[in-house]
Nucleic acid binder design. Structure first.
Lengths: 155, 155
DNA sequence: CTGGGTTACGCTCAACGTAACGATA
DNA sequence: TATCGTTACGTTGAGCGTAACCCAG
């Protein structure tokens, strides 16, 4: 059961017509026909009644397609979250910094971040160098530059 | 973004090792490696840190994989519902019947259904033949046999 | 003849297995 | 050397387009 075939079925249900649904999906009516057949075969049930003037969703199909709509919404939401995380507009940014640079840099950095990236959760670990290298392995995105080791791993 | 690749990533996250994850997925470690690379490329972010003794999920990867887990749960739920509907153990069964056979047959039919298929929602339309044929087009699974037309469409 | 769904045929590319490779302990 | 992950190479099958086909109005 893959998402593409479910999208195909939803488009067909919306239009009630293979040719129009195919247009929306940027595939031919023929390819869509086989895709729907494959889905129905895989699920072991007919989702559409074929008539001379188009198709109609079956009773069972209505239930399945309702679930498919939910699932695709869920998938789209995940994709959007990934896109947002990629742009560091959303998500959790966790980094570490030593005591001295923290005192100098943090006020500017944090206020700037809060202004420009309101969707970003920022959390800072102020620790010794040894502790920070340890933390970097497990839950930090990067370290601000410190005296002896200058790590800049972007997460 | 297809469900197969997400399953692959989750298996890898669980085992922390390509070979073991591949075993669980019934593919080779090589195929899994390329699948993960393709997913990371598609999402535009690294999900795993590669080390000499295996892999670890990145900070971003933890967020993505949490969403993937939800999504796959949702997909499995949909598949289970389809399987149940196929066996008429769950779902809504809607059928119509004329007044006379209703009086004779319904008591036996309904009590039998309630006993053997407790997960099944049954609803009956008792109507004239003309009304029932009309309803059959829109929301009934089948009609019980009537005087002149004997329709037995299983939904 | 037109507008709808299906079937036949051939192509392409994503996914795979095998095997060679590179790196690290 | 043993155990990781990656890369090279060839094969297979799902998915597609084109075109022929079938049926109803």
């Amino acid at each position: 059961m893959d998402l593409r075939k479910l999208k195909h079925a939803l488009a067909l249900a919306e239009t009630g017509n293979y040719a129009r649904a195919g247009k929306k999906l940027f595939i031919t009516q023929s390819a869509l026909s086989r895709s729907i057949q494959a889905l129905e075969s895989e699920l072991g049930m007919m989702l559409f009644e074929r008539h001379s003037n188009g198709v109609r969703v079956t009773v069972a199909g209505q239930e399945v397609l309702a679930g498919a709509r939910d699932l695709l919404r869920h998938a789209n939401s995940l994709e959007r979250n990934v896109a947002l995380m990629r742009n560091v507009e959303l998500g959790k940014l966790q980094f570490g910094v030593g005591p001295v640079p923290a005192h100098v840099l943090l006020p500017r950095v944090m206020s700037g971040a809060a202004r420009e990236k309101p969707g970003l959760q920022v959390s800072v670990q102020i620790q010794s160098a040894a502790k920070l290298v340890e933390l970097l392995r497990s839950r930090l995105n990067f370290l601000l530059p410190m005296r002896d080791n200058c790590l800049t791993t972007v997460g």
